[in-house]
Amino acid sequence: MSAVGKWLDIGPVDQLPALGARTLPVRGGRKIAIFHTANGEVYALANQCPHKQGPLSQGIVHDTTVTCPLHNWRISLVTGEALGEDKGCVPVIPVKIDGGRILIGRAAALEGVA
């Protein structure tokens, strides 16, 4: 497995909107949302709120948090945990930036793929 590498290059950072997100479908797996914060940091979560599966990629990004468009749950982009009184956790996909390109962890990205 080492031949295929631990990281997947999914494109340049400048293709992400400021304070927004874009999606990354995984064939046979779950869709991933890539978020861009005001500080220019990049995070990746499964694109499903733990509450009612709302599309987090269409939520509003603030600090290191995204607010689900469906019921206003606030989800930490760092830990994937729901904040405040709500309980739940979204799978986090590790991200690193290398030379202006976004790399995401292969194993986490492919989780659930048969």
């Binding site: 999914i10 494109g11 293709q15 990354l24 479908p25 064939r27 990205a109 793929v113």
Partner: peptide, 20 residues
Amino acid sequence: KLHQHLAEIRPLAAPALVAA
């Protein structure tokens, strides 16, 4: 492009990755 997927991961067809 902001209205399209950033890319797509196709794990079954070899470890291929197609950028949008």
